[in-house]
Amino acid sequence: MAIIEVNRLTRAFGDFIAVKEVTFSVERGEIFGFLGANGAGKTTCIRMLIGLLAPTSGEARVAGFDVYTQPEQIKRNIGYMSQRFSLYEDLTVRENIRFYGGIYGLSNRAIKEKTAELLEELGLTGVRDERIRSLPLGWRQKLAFSVAILHDPEIVFLDEPTGGVDPIIRRQFWDLIYEASAQGVTVFVTTHYMDEAEYCDRVSIMVDGRIEAIGPPGELKRKFGVDTMNEVFLRLARGGAETAAETAAQGGGG
């Protein structure tokens, strides 16, 4: 049973079509990698799914709710962590947790319990009264993720969650993702680190606003006859670039 269903979803900004008739679905409990080069349309697509951006055409349902008519219901059932940190840098760890917990309607008691649990799990108990500004990037990312799933959403959307940190910290971050996934949260993650793509149950690769390939990493590697997701990605991305170059050449010749 698909928890995200997207059918011919399109978004145009003036003449520029950022997302072109994208169709795909994500199953409940999956870790779905949403890959693509910078500017391929990943963020635009994710913003439509979480109700921040109105689609131009097409259909999409998230957690059973329509993106056009029920964006508020969608928001109650999803978590979101963006590439720009969503935490307030001038508030402390505890204050951030309390604020987001409160906004999502958690009871005071639930907020208290969740806070203790989360600090313990992330090993942040010692810095719970430190301001976010003073924490290292990797800690902030882990905390932002935990805050995004504080209200036990059905799906969590992660938009390039691990930008700017080393592979060890990225690996630790992915441990958190697995843990959430094991508890039944569907994970929808965009990234351009291809080692991360290997961790996903299924990935889609977006090139110039279209989804050019979709499937489990192993299957895609076999299909393209390569050993790593990196090579799959390069082939598709280069293919897109070549196609674009050809089109341009033809346009110039005709």
């Binding site: 979480i50 109700g51 921040l52 508020e72 928001k75 109650r76 999803i78 979101y80 963006s82 720009r84 940190f85 969503s86 935490l87 307030y88 840098e89 987001y100 906004i103 999502y104 309607g105």
Partner: peptide
């Protein structure tokens, strides 16, 4: 500017 508005906008606030 700091991007937190986006986070607020995805909450059911």
């Amino acid at each position: 500017e700091i991007g937190t508005i986006e986070q607020l906008n995805v909450t059911p606030i």
